[in-house]
Nucleic acid binder design. Structure first.
Lengths: 339, 339
DNA sequence: ACTTGGCACTCGGGTCGCGTGAGTGCCAGA
DNA sequence: TCTGGCACTCACGCGACCCGAGTGCCAAGT
């Protein structure tokens, strides 16, 4: 009973604070929620909650504000994932169905997510390491240069230009192309390095340098900076919070410009199933300690291939945000399946 | 003589204001610049400049601030393009030389430009309409789906998935691929629609629906949303200006999230040769009326293929910004030539 | 053992008034 | 045409002040 009411008080504080962005006092609380007790009682509960570290006062004689720990408890025990309304579901379908290629899917998804949550959205390109080779193309651009184009089953394309030391004939290129193609098509990217091992040995000594140059570049393409692309959108929403937050914008914008940071934010989500919520200092980037990150993974059918999510102030609408992130991830998965 | 000094005063005001971001008064002006006359004389000149609309006072008894018109005169007649220092030149080379593909070039360029100018940078992908077809690939993903991959000589890649009504054999696909390839390789994109006209007529009636589906998609890919990609970076710099500017951040960030807006900002630059500077209200986007846009075009050798530039507050360092934009555009052109 | 009303206390934020100084415009003299 | 002098304006910073929301604590009630 007692414990129950305290939790109800915490929930009320979080909800009010998220709605108003202003410290919430005991009197306002009993007025806006039917808690059935007097402000004085609430004050006692608040004192206890503060003692336990769930809420804090910005200064004496001000209302209470949830701490990161308070939000954590709220997310873990006091709220669920808010299901989307029908119009919202329809908006997702409508917005994403017109995409013509993977780039388009990524761009549309990030915009959609930003618009739905009114926060900064992040979408990671499908990871090569968790997809397979759909096609490999080798194109002779000149007699000493070839272009390698690698297409993943997720629709992702990587291309590299390779300079060849000595001129090669078209037919040699065609031969290499054909053999490489049969060797790697359909294989998971993780298996490619092994396949390429000693691949050039099977060719004429004359063609070997060229084959080695190609396999080396290919190897580099599939191993290095393999997951390095994250699309970001909705940064304008950062400026939407009170002045207090506006002043702290710069480090956040800076952090969000670094791919490494974005990957760290999204990276850990792809491990855990379900929706990951990192609140304030919990998240791995110090400059983002006043923000929360809500992420989840998406994939082709069962297999997860990458992550997406949003970054917003710690005082965000967690149930709503989680609902949007979840729904969008599901729909993107569905689309990728059809690609 | 008189006219000359007035211009010198305007230049001094612009330079000081750009350096300090604070209204500049007559006394400070004679102290910091050796104008050889007394503050009282400067005051007369200032009154005249204000009369003509080149400078303004935020309020009575404050210093003067350049107006958009003042900056315009400064850019047109009082300043040139500041050449880069040797270390800066080296930085460009070092930063851009490691790029592995076109995407990488675009991303690196936008970061470099943002870092050098400490402002928001924009880089447009090479326009398809001003480049040629390097390669076309048609890949059978299943018996009823083919993937079309189009590669421009600028390194840009477009891909589309096409659903075919009735199953087709691998050999048919190979045939279509071969014929299409010889038809379009090396052709400018502008000529592709004409080439595709009536292309399916030359095939068996049985193959025609599939060929039509492919050419239709191809046509769509080369005509629609053809120049639609602009990369943006350095938005964190927006938060670097005094509070006054920080409060006006949101409309700017919002405008910069819209591709259409970015294309309008960059689009007009590709017409005029040299460096285009749009100051404050001069630029075509209302929400950006407190910013200036410095752009120029880049290309493969002579031919311009797209534009790049920066967006910053009207009180920016014009000579330096123009120098950086110019130098980066030149180097990007050089790199593209080698692709 | 909780809950409640009462009460004194704290302190952030808004308002008012004032002094200061940078900056101006104008004028008379060089 | 330039210069020094002078009176004037006005944004800004500072301290004093008040107000009120909100708190903690305590004694009394259930």
């Amino acid at each position: 009973m007692l414990e129950d009411r305290r939790l109800a008080v915490l929930r009320a504080i979080v909800e009010d604070y998220v709605a108003t962005h202003e410290p919430v006092g005991s009197k306002a609380l009993v007025e806006r929620h039917s808690l059935g007790v007097s402000p004085a009682t609430i004050r006692n509960d608040m004192a206890a909650l503060e003692e336990e570290g769930y809420i804090a006062q910005p200064h004496t004689s001000a209302g209470r504000v949830p701490t990161d720990l308070g939000y954590r408890l709220f997310v873990d025990r006091l709220s669920g994932v808010k299901p989307l309304s029908a119009p919202e579901r329809r908006a997702i379908v409508q917005f994403l169905d017109g995409a013509v290629d993977l780039d388009d899917v990524m761009v549309r998804t990030v915009r959609l997510l930003a618009q739905m949550t009114r926060q900064v959205a992040l979408v990671q390109y499908p990871s090569l390491s968790r997809s397979s080779v759909r096609h490999l193309e080798i194109i002779a651009v000149s007699s000493t240069r070839v272009l390698i184009v690698l297409i993943a089953d997720t629709g992702r394309v990587e291309q590299r230009m390779v300079d060849i030391a000595s001129p090669v004939s078209e037919s040699t290129v065609a031969d290499v192309r054909a053999r490489l193609l049969t060797a790697v098509t359909g294989q998971p990217f993780g298996a490619v390095p092994e396949i390429l091992q000693g691949f050039s040995d099977a060719f004429d000594p004359g063609a070997r340098p060229m084959v080695s140059a190609i396999t080396a570049t290919l190897l580099e393409a599939v191993t290095e900076r393999v997951d390095e692309r994250v699309v970001i959108g909705g940064t304008a929403h950062l400026a939407r919070y009170g002045e207090a937050f506006t002043l702290a914008i710069q480090p956040v914008l800076e952090a969000l410009e670094e791919q490494v940071v974005l990957l760290r934010l999204l990276g850990e989500a792809s491990v855990a199933p379900g929706i990951t919520v990192r609140i304030g200092h919990e998240n791995p980037v110090e400059r983002l300690e006043s923000t929360s990150v809500v992420t989840t993974s998406y994939g082709r059918g069962e297999q997860s291939v990458a992550s997406l999510g949003v970054v917003g102030p710690t005082h965000m609408d967690y149930p709503g945000t989680m609902g949007a992130v979840h729904a969008v991830a599901q729909y993107v998965s569905k689309i990728l399946e059809g690609q």
